[in-house]
Structure formats: C-alpha cells, structure tokens
Nucleic acid binder design. Structure first.
Lengths: 115, 115
DNA sequence: GTAGGACCTGACGCTAACGTCAGGTGCAAG
DNA sequence: CTTGCACCTGACGTTAGCGTCAGGTCCTAC
C-alpha cells in the first residue's frame, strides 16, 4: 500500500509517517518511480507506535526498543532496556495517580464549599 | 525567601521559577532593589506544579485551573474544568496501562524465546 | 496525451518549557 | 568602599513531532 492509504488506515498524517521512516521506525520498498510501498502489517505497527507515543516514549526510545520487539530481544541489554522502560511506565503511572489524587482533593474541597 | 532559596527548596531551577511567574502561576513581592520575594508557601505550590506537569498538564492549563484551586472553584465552569481534567487524566492512565500491557507482551514473548 | 490527484524531497515554521549567555544591579561582609 | 555572589531583564538557543508551503514528478483515467 502507498503512504496515503497507510495514513488513512492507521489514522496518522502522511507527514508523520515520513517522519517515522526518517527516524528508522518504518521501512518501505520503493516503486520504480520512487514512491513508498508499505506492507499491510505497517498499519498495526504504526498503531503500536501511537500507543507508545501516548505513553510518553520518544521516537528515539522506540527506535532503541524496536530490535527487542522485532527479534524478540534475547540479549541481556535488550532485556534490560525492556525492563527499565516498563519501570519508567510504572513511574509515570504513579505520577498520574498522585496528580489525580491531588485534583480529587481540590474537587471534593470545592464541592464541600459549594454546599 | 528569595528565588534561589525557593529553587533549592522546591527542586526546580531559578529559570523555571521565573518562567512560572511569567505564566501567571506564581506571584511575588519585590524588594526596593527589585528582587523577588516569595512566601514560604510557594515551595508547596511549586511542588504541586511539578506534580501536575509530570501528569502532562501544560502551564496554560494549570493557569486556568488555578482559580479553582485557590478559591475553591465554586462556579459551574470551574467545576466543569476540574472534571474534564480529571477525565483527561483517567484517559492518559488508560493509555499508559495499554502501553504497559503491550510492553509486557513483548517481554514475556522474549523471555519465552530465550528459554 | 493530458488532466489532476497522490507522491516526492527539501526546508522553514511552530509550540512548550525551559537552558544559557550577555550586560548590568542589589546586597551582605569585611 | 569594594569584593563577590545572588539577582535582574532581555533575548537567542534547544528539542520533539510534526504542519505547511514550494516546486517538481508519478500514475491512473479518460
């Protein structure tokens, strides 16, 4: 499939897709005319990237994790990277919970005041 | 207290504090010589900002929420803003859980492969 | 063979949250 | 009164993840 179709199916912009390729996250064949040709599996891949981006990972970090993801990450370094990223996620979730709790305090306080 | 002391106690840079003030998040008196003088309560306030920043809120958003936080947010608009921000946090947490789950898949898959 | 939509490669623009000079002032100590 | 560190106000630099032209090519259809 070509880039426009991939964009439509994965829900990101064409520009974003070219950027992902530039960062080494996506690969593509080229037609004789020079246009990108993606495999259909790229759709899921891009959606996966979106999930990771939403979780706060950078392109750089995703690119580092890709070998682990694609090959199954058998080296110790890869295992360690996956682990540390998991811990980072846990940390971020804790921060969110903290912020959420603090906001709740404000909310309940304001409700009490408006009674 | 002066800005350097506040920076030390709250754990952020002097530049960041001036930025917060610029964005309307912090207030300060001025000495005759023009130097900022903060109340000691500013320490907690700044830490609170850090919590919200960590949760993904922008300065702009925090500034919007401030009246709710300071005055107790009694208007309907303020209540609505607090609610919507709470929901946004819940959404972000769901995204994190999703990403975390996907990463776990990768991790368990790689462990299985390395056996 | 030609219209025109999809695609191409630069390359500059944008926002947020500061970092980092530069050049000048305040202030507490000796 | 002079160090000398803390502080001041601009103002430009930085990073990420794209948005958005500009100017030119590909490809499919008629």
């Amino acid at each position: 499939m070509r880039i426009g179709e991939l964009a439509k199916q994965s829900g990101v912009s064409v520009r974003a897709l070219r950027y992902y390729e530039e960062q080494g996250l996506l690969e593509s064949e080229r037609t004789p005319g020079g246009q990108r040709e993606f495999e259909s599996s790229a759709v899921d891949r891009v959606r996966f990237f979106q999930t990771l981006y939403a979780a706060g990972l950078s392109s750089r970090r995703i690119a580092e994790l890709l070998p682990c993801i694609d090959t199954g990450g058998t080296t110790k370094e890869q295992q360690a990277m996956l682990q540390s990223e998991r811990e980072a996620l846990a940390h971020r979730m804790a921060e969110l919970r903290e912020a959420s709790a603090r906001l709740d305090e404000v909310i309940t306080a304001s409700k009490a005041r408006s009674l």
